[in-house]
Nucleic acid binder design. Structure first.
Length: 564
RNA sequence: CGGGGCAUGGCGCAGCCUGGUAGCGCAUCUGCUUUGGGAGCAGAGGGUCGGGUGUUCGAAUCACCCUGCCCCGACCA
């Protein structure tokens, strides 16, 4: 490609709308342009990157034996009503009417459609296992689209769906996808981790997420410093307190705490650490409000809490009126001592001694509270998010916390959809049974943003070579004024093209500085400068985007390097 | 959904408080010079100041309504 014919416009200044670096660079390098909130046009250079990602994903999916198909983006409402998701999905589902006032939605995911295909196409166990996939546009009407293509409303996803006779078959299909995903993200040149995700309520089902590690990631990941354990922070388990509780040394006291409404306030007033306090949260339970008790510095984990028997799901915090009625006090002065509500204690709480908590009277707190003296020692449950330094659940070492961008998710669905949509096959004994399904997603568009988030510097993008829109950029100096440079540049350009190298020839009549700056901004991995000076000496000037300095090389050596 | 902010030429912004008919930088176009790190000079084009209503002799500027976009939050206890 000749730069002069590529229609690429780069931006020197950062558009005000972009917050994170990948979004800024995608706009500046001309990969995307915004149409509306969460909607983006992929410009020619951006499409080149997208196609590279797609090609790798497609190759590995095919290698894993999956079959590509292409499903409609628009789905009839009836299909979603069959599984009940028409009502469950809520406003995330974009609903539309056709001219006959029939209701449709724009597909946010394709379980319903693929299960409909499967129940029509698949009759016999002999047709299984089978795995269908597509690379296709999804629409989710997100509450808050943000970070450019990281959380957009319309995006491109690779989604695959496996069908097996039984759980053992599903396990094998799932493992195949796990391995294919590992191969894909490795080939893409990204630093990633596979983490355990919310395993769901369906028996035997499991789920793992593939995260690109980046500080700007929306998800927190807990991982072991000694073994392979890694989990989304939402699902990393905490264990019952292992350490022995210190002896009760302080006397129980009730003290006035005027103006105290938070753990922070309490700590400031008493000059203590948050870890010496406990907080009591009132949430809705199955029969009226219930109390959740955590160490003051710990965070409630809503996913864990709403799974507890007796706690309403989804988790909802009680409002001020409910709290007053249930406790006779105000939020800010609550505690387990003397509470009449059902109380759930986090594991960590029973390792505490001489702690402070609310007294269930307005602006009154207890200090020096101890179990077995002031309170019976309760049973405990897992209520909180893990923190760095916690022991690895069922493994070795201690947990560290990193941030990640979720780019892939594999999930065992079991028979959830096959049962509700009656997608059955005949097994070896002639019996009809619901197929075991798995689903496997990769965010194609999100990968592009994640790759930039992980690979950039002050001058712009540094593409991992497999994703780069071009392998190499040729930068001729004085192309329009030097016959030597012109001849050499054209010849090298033609030869690289003939060799199948993706080459960008910067043939613009602009000053060299402009070409260098753009080459770095758009992140082409290899740069070859052709100048009259160098050519006379029989040398080209080569520099990798990650290198600090360029070096002189013979033409043949450059070509050899590009062909690996 | 709650809170905050923003909306002025393609992009980044000033002007608004204190009302008087719109300006700067980048980009674009023309000419000359320049050509190894985002050139210089001279000139040119391009804006119903997001939309509506109102106040006023007069509104980018003041008031009200609407729309769009961005950010934060949705665990105070």
């Amino acid at each position: 490609m000749r730069f002069s014919e590529f229609g690429l416009t780069t931006l020197k200044e950062v558009p005000a709308e972009a917050e994170i670096v990948s979004h800024q660079l995608m706009l500046r390098a001309g990969l995307i342009r915004r149409l509306a909130s969460g909607l983006f046009t992929w410009m020619p250079i951006g499409v080149r990157v997208l196609r590279k990602v797609e090609a790798i994903v497609r190759e590995e999916m095919n290698r894993a034996g999956a079959l590509e198909l292409l499903m409609p983006a628009v789905h009839p409402a009836e299909l979603w009503q069959e599984t009940g998701r028409w009502d469950q999905y809520g406003p995330l589902l974009l609903r539309i009417f056709d001219r006959h006032q029939r209701e449709f939605c724009f597909g946010p995911t394709h379980e319903e459609v693929i299960t409909d295909i499967a129940r029509r196409e698949l009759r016999s166990y002999k047709q299984l296992p089978i795995n269908y996939y597509q690379i296709q546009t999804k629409f989710r009407d997100e509450i808050r689209p943000r970070f450019g293509v990281m959380r957009s409303r319309e995006f491109i996803m690779k989604d695959a769906y496996s069908f097996d006779v039984d759980q053992a078959g599903l396990d094998a299909s799932y493992q195949k996808m796990h391995d294919a995903y590992t191969a894909i993200f490795t080939r893409l040149g990204l630093t990633f981790r596979v983490v355990w995700a919310d395993s769901g309520e369906i028996g035997g089902s499991k789920s793992q997420e593939f995260h690109v590690i980046a500080d700007s990631g929306e998800d927190a990941i807990a991982y072991s410093d000694e073994d392979d354990y890694a989990s989304n922070i939402e699902t990393a388990a905490t264990s019952p307190a292992a350490t022995t509780r210190p002896a009760a040394s302080a006397a129980l006291q009730k003290i006035p705490t005027p103006g105290v409404r938070s753990i922070d306030d309490l700590c400031k007033l008493l000059k203590i650490e948050a870890a010496q306090t406990i907080k009591t949260l009132i949430v809705h339970g199955d029969d009226g409000p219930v109390a959740l008790v955590l160490r003051g510095d710990h965070e409630l984990n809503a996913v864990k809490a709403q799974k507890l028997a007796g706690v309403a799901s989804p988790l909802t915090m009680a409002d001020g009126d409910t709290i007053r009625k249930a406790t006779g006090s105000e939020a800010g002065s609550l505690g387990p001592l003397g509470s009449k509500l059902p109380v759930y204690y986090d594991h960590a709480v029973t390792a505490m001694a001489n702690f402070s908590c609310g007294a269930n009277e307005v602006e009154q707190h207890f200090t020096g509270v101890n179990f077995e003296r002031d309170l019976p020692l309760p049973a405990t449950v897992d209520l909180r998010n893990v923190i760095a330094g916690d022991p690895v659940p069922g493994g070795n070492g201690t947990l560290k916390i990193a941030r990640g961008i979720e780019v892939g998710h594999i999930f065992q669905l079991g028979t959830k959809y096959s049962e509700s949509m009656r997608a059955t096959i005949h097994d070896q004994d002639g019996k009809e049974r619901a197929m075991h399904m798995g689903c496997y997603g990769i965010g194609i568009t999100r990968i592009v943003g994640a790759a930039i988030e992980q690979n950039h510097d002050a001058n712009g993008i540094i593409w991992p070579e497999p994703l780069a829109p071009f392998d190499v950029v040729l930068v001729p100096i004085n192309l329009q004024r030097s016959a030597i440079v012109q001849e050499a540049a054209e010849a090298l350009y033609a030869e690289m093209q003939a060799l199948g190298v993706d080459v960008l020839l910067d043939d613009r009549d602009v000053r060299p500085g402009v070409k260098f700056a753009d080459a770095e901004l758009i992140g082409i991995p290899h740069r070859v400068v052709l100048s009259e000076r160098g050519l006379t000496g029989g040398e080209l000037e080569y520099r990798h985007r990650r290198d600090a300095e360029s070096r002189d090389m013979k033409r043949a050596a450059v070509l050899e390097l590009l062909l690996k």
